[in-house]
Design a protein around this nucleic acid. Sequence first.
DNA 1: GTGAAAACATGACAAATATCATATTTAAAT
DNA 2: ATTTAAATATGATATTTGTCATGTTTTCAC
Lengths: 225, 225
Amino acid sequence: MSKCEQCIIRQFNSLKSLTKDELIRISGCKTTKIIKKGEVIFDEGDKLNGVFCIKDGICKLSKLSENGKDQIVKLVVKGELLGQRSLISDERANLQATALNDMEVCFIPREEIVNDLQKNPSFTFDVLQQMAQDLKEADDVIVNMAQKSVRQRMAEVLINIHKSFGTNPDGTLSVLLSREDFASLVGTATESAIRVLSQFKKEGLISTVGKQIKIEDLEELSRIE
Amino acid sequence: MSKCEQCIIRQFNSLKSLTKDELIRISGCKTTKIIKKGEVIFDEGDKLNGVFCIKDGICKLSKLSENGKDQIVKLVVKGELLGQRSLISDERANLQATALNDMEVCFIPREEIVNDLQKNPSFTFDVLQQMAQDLKEADDVIVNMAQKSVRQRMAEVLINIHKSFGTNPDGTLSVLLSREDFASLVGTATESAIRVLSQFKKEGLISTVGKQIKIEDLEELSRIE
DNA sequence: GTGAAAACATGACAAATATCATATTTAAAT
DNA sequence: ATTTAAATATGATATTTGTCATGTTTTCAC
């Protein structure tokens, strides 16, 4: 089994604030899981008995609306933690987490994390800072959802994915999403999402190879209104 | 000057986790302000040099969208803190705070709060729990904005105000908002908000006395789809 | 009290988006 | 390789929501 204290992934999340001893302790009780694309990591209402540290892969956090449609709230990638919110509030999961490609995650039991939250203030503060950042991003999404058009929102989704998760060597977005997922991120019907992407393609803002998308004109895409 | 250690307001926010000594120290450097209805407490981009503890009144947190319209992200009332997010992230304010009625707030300088965050883990954890709750609520708002109709969102706004902030003795909502603010909460045009409220009135779901609103049929209002 | 400005209200129409129908392409299973 | 299902795509149309115009009511300063 791999050791947390030697794992470089933790540099990207709050676990970096743990001491060597704490990491060794966590290393001893964590479990590593392989999760297949499409698999649900946890569901709305699930009681989470710990947090997940994503070693590889990407997943979506979504919530089923009363009209039966899923809304993606956030994408979570390699390096980030999953499930801290529920653990801190001591509540059941508010969102569903689903793998978007094959993932490797480490599961750290609740007691270990809670222990560290109580005893290591700099870890707690780091978690707090991450949560504050998440809250800011969520506030911005609220404003966008409420005030911008589907076209604008799609442009921003593409730009965000490009900026946050990068591109493959050929320039295509490294995060591969279905049109349905794009719709669910933008908050629109799948047909509308497809139409907007088709339009972007016609306008030369993006190009596609299969379902791969490449941003051709980032400048113009960010000017859309 | 009033004393924090004797102030009952702190029971409603994270300051309750401070020790008596810490409260006395804060009491010595806080300043109390009276803010008039409509006054901006802080603006987007402002550098906040502390947090506000709301002793009385209510305010809105909003953000100006690129299309020039304000979107209200959250209402903050008596008992809650204002500005912690920016302080923790050490960033300029992401939102604007505007008084919705006459307010009394205590301003606590940044250094004092930061000091406590470093030295009192239970205070930090309390702030973290509050932030986690805010994040959950923000996620839910995202889903509603993206997936529900203006009619549904207005119904939820009315129900939330009713549940969270209560009613006057005559049953009208204790938080008095302009139609423009309702529109900005729902994320729609002012005219659309007015139309929906008029429709609710016609259907007997609410009644109005001037701009005061009274929920007449909470059951039916929550069934709207 | 009176006039002006702001807030509220409603109709008419335009624009954006959803829905339904139906191809077409791609991926998956056998 | 062939079949089948799923994903993508596009047109036609309905619905929702925004915008503009205009009238009414309320609020507020003087």
